[in-house]
Amino acid sequence: MRYRSPDEDSARWDGFPFREGDIVISTRSKSGTTWAQMICALLVFQDPELPAPLSELSPWLDWLVLPRDDVFARLEAQPHRRFIKTHTPLDGIPRDARATYVVVARHPLDMAVSLFHQGDNLDRGRMAELLGTSVGPAPAGSPRSLHDSLIAWIERDVAPADALDSLPGVMWHLSDAWRRRNDPAVVLVHYADLVSDLGGEMRRLADRLGVEVPEERWPVLVDAAEFAQMRARADQLAPDPVGILKDRAAFFRRGGLGSGRELLSDEEFARYETRASELASTDLLAWLHR
């Protein structure tokens, strides 16, 4: 399936020359993408001092801002094991027997809160310049408070492919991955597990990727993947190769687990649960909401 937005096109994957050991990191926005990229970088290089900025080591292949041929050439030139970023669901990416696909999930309400704050940190004028478009006015009457935006996000009824960061889009992406969870080439990672047991999750991912790490290296690698350490290195780690973020450190704003639930009344949260149950299976929701 092809997925397109004003700044993404999954068709850029067509003809991509995979090679043995490739890692594809497939996430929704603000669901742990950069965290997963950093973990993969640490497992591949086994050193906190990376040889290049993270966005160069792990480019966002679908992003229209960067010429496709340049991205392919950069990846082709990499001598190390490659790990590639995408926000495309797995059904929009070529499946290759040589690759492993890592899907990171986050509680949708917490993701929506982070998405709200991320929107305020984007330089939309710079994005329009890079894409050759114009910056349109905000829709009349569009909600601006975080609470009102979250309610509107819960209620928005849209085709998943038309708005992948909507609630229907999130559930579409994760439902597709959930159906593949028993595939040895697909690894599901939960954001909450990264928060509660970062070292354990890094070891689990290393095992699934077939990466051997000397025991004495683990403490320094886990420390480098801690959120505070990543924020301190925002200039190297923020996904901002062309200057679209107003503040790179602010990209690493850490929303606590349950931050979305805290904004909702019991009635509003019950409405969210009803909407979620209409869009995803019970077993996926039990895993996602824990």
Rank of each mutant, 00 (worst) to 15 (best):
M1L: 10
R4D: 03
E8F: 09
A11Y: 01
R12W: 07
P17A: 13
P17E: 13
S31F: 04
L43N: 04
V44L: 07
D47N: 15
E49Y: 02
P53C: 14
L66H: 06
R68V: 07
D69Y: 04
D70M: 12
A73R: 14
A73E: 11
E76H: 03
E76G: 08
A77N: 09
R81W: 00
I84M: 02
P89K: 15
L90R: 04
G92C: 11
P94L: 07
A97M: 05
A97K: 02
V102C: 01
A105P: 00
F116I: 14
Q118N: 11
D120N: 12
D123K: 05
S134F: 08
S134K: 15
V135L: 14
A138L: 15
A138W: 08
A138Q: 13
A140H: 13
S145I: 03
D148N: 08
E155W: 00
D157E: 14
P160S: 11
D162A: 15
A163V: 01
D165I: 12
D165Q: 14
S166V: 04
L167R: 02
P168A: 08
G169T: 02
D176K: 13
P184R: 05
A185G: 10
V189R: 02
L198N: 08
R203I: 09
R204A: 12
L209P: 03
P219A: 15
V222I: 14
D223W: 01
E226A: 11
Q229V: 10
M230L: 10
A232D: 12
A234S: 12
A238D: 05
P241L: 10
K246Q: 10
R248S: 02
F251V: 03
E262F: 05
S265H: 10
E267K: 08
E268L: 08
Y272M: 07
S277Q: 11
R290V: 07
